[in-house]
Design a protein around this nucleic acid. Structure first.
Lengths: 220, 220
DNA sequence: ACTTCAATCAATAGATTACTTGATTGTAAA
DNA sequence: TTTACAATCAAGTAATCTATTGATTGAAGT
């Protein structure tokens, strides 16, 4: 069991990597990227039992990827810092580069939805500055409230059909949601274009925006 | 067993993360960062049985992190691309930020060795341009041959005491080796300073240099 | 053909991980 | 105190992962 200094350090790194090595934990991290949440809410959104979610969250905590605080009866988890989002982005980059599998899945499910070029963060900033676009946040209201792009309008995807009137029909809509693999933004763009309205999606989501150090607004 | 598109993609990402989730595999990747190597050589350096090393390497290959080619009886592995080094760097960054454990280990083993400020890549380039320093590569000769910093002198750590005459006693030495956790560079700096010679170490190693897109020289 | 040797494959035992169930802890309110 | 509830803990089973052993494949050389 004796280990050199290097082996000991590499074992620590490996521990962090292993904490990322489960789809459920990655999904928990994706949700935590939106903002602080209680265990129960997380479990419900990811579709895990409470005990199971709690255990996954504790693993993430042991790896230093998330932190938590108690408020009354509730325990709220959050990402340990913005570096976590960077690590997740690096993981996604490398995975996409080499895994034909990812591409195959994307093509299969997201089909033509991807055919309209996504908008980069820089493009979005430019267009917002010149007042040409409406930025649309299609996440649920509570996630919007915890943090969103400045000037964004919040219409959760399920309400989009009923609230089309709230969107200026003459300006292009740029939709975003949780991240690069969140389907909400795809769906929103498809729905808007079906109405003959110009719409595109932001290339990734809120956590990446925040991690890039760009301004964030909150409500409530 | 049915999975949405997101779950399927996250499962792929998790697979890549799990491939990084073992100290032996991280060490294999560190060695592969120096350049292409045969299975036997890797197994010997990391201290694994041949079969075990082979299986770890295949796991890395399945995750798309390394590639291999056959040449006669030998099979040579290499990093799939420079992005792998970036991902490893991101993993190290995040791990260091949050794990007191890493710091504790570092302090315990590397002690005062760290007390002389390491040199950044930019600093090194500047000093080389003005001819003020000797760049010293203390890795084994074969690793040096596969790629090294331009203008670097190769004296493996074990031979340093006997070959001090080869180093200009008036110019500062900047030593480097495999990476941020390779002890060779620490040892070399300690040995040189014990002789009263000015010496510091590069903040990280050859793979990071190469991944940063800086020029690389080869011999043989 | 036969031998040699690098590397992989196959099978196994032991360790670790994931998820469930039911009990326990900690806080707030009745 | 008692009750209620969020979250954790504990225990057990099924599944997965690691490392060893010995057999097998593939490319050279005799």
């Amino acid at each position: 069991m004796s280990m050199g200094p290097k082996q000991a350090i590499l074992a620590e790194f490996a521990g962090v990597a292993r904490a990322l090595g489960h789809a459920h934990r990655l999904e928990l991290l994706e949700h935590l990227g939106q903002g602080e949440r209680g265990v129960d809410a997380l479990a419900a959104r990811v579709g895990l039992s409470l005990a199971n979610a709690s255990q996954h969250l504790q693993q993430l905590r042991r790896a230093g990827l998330v932190a938590n605080r108690r408020d009354g009866k509730f325990i709220y988890y959050r990402l340990a810092d913005d570096g976590v989002t960077d690590l997740l982005t690096a993981l996604r980059r490398q995975s996409e580069r080499n895994l034909a599998e990812v591409d195959r899945i994307r093509r299969g499910y997201f089909a033509d939805r991807d055919s309209f070029e996504p908008v980069s963060r820089e493009d979005l900033l430019e267009r917002v500055a010149s007042g040409l676009v409406t930025v649309l946040d299609v996440r649920p209201q509570d996630e919007f409230g915890q943090g969103h792009l400045p000037g964004a309008v919040n219409i959760p995807l399920g309400e989009l059909q009923d609230r089309l009137a709230e969107l200026d029909p003459d300006s292009e809509v740029i939709a975003y949601c949780r991240g690069a693999y969140c389907v909400f933004a795809f769906e929103a763009v498809a729905a808007l274009r079906a109405q003959g309205r110009p719409a595109r999606r932001l290339v990734d989501g809120f956590p990446e925006w925040k991690a890039a150090g760009l301004p964030v607004a909150t409500s409530f």
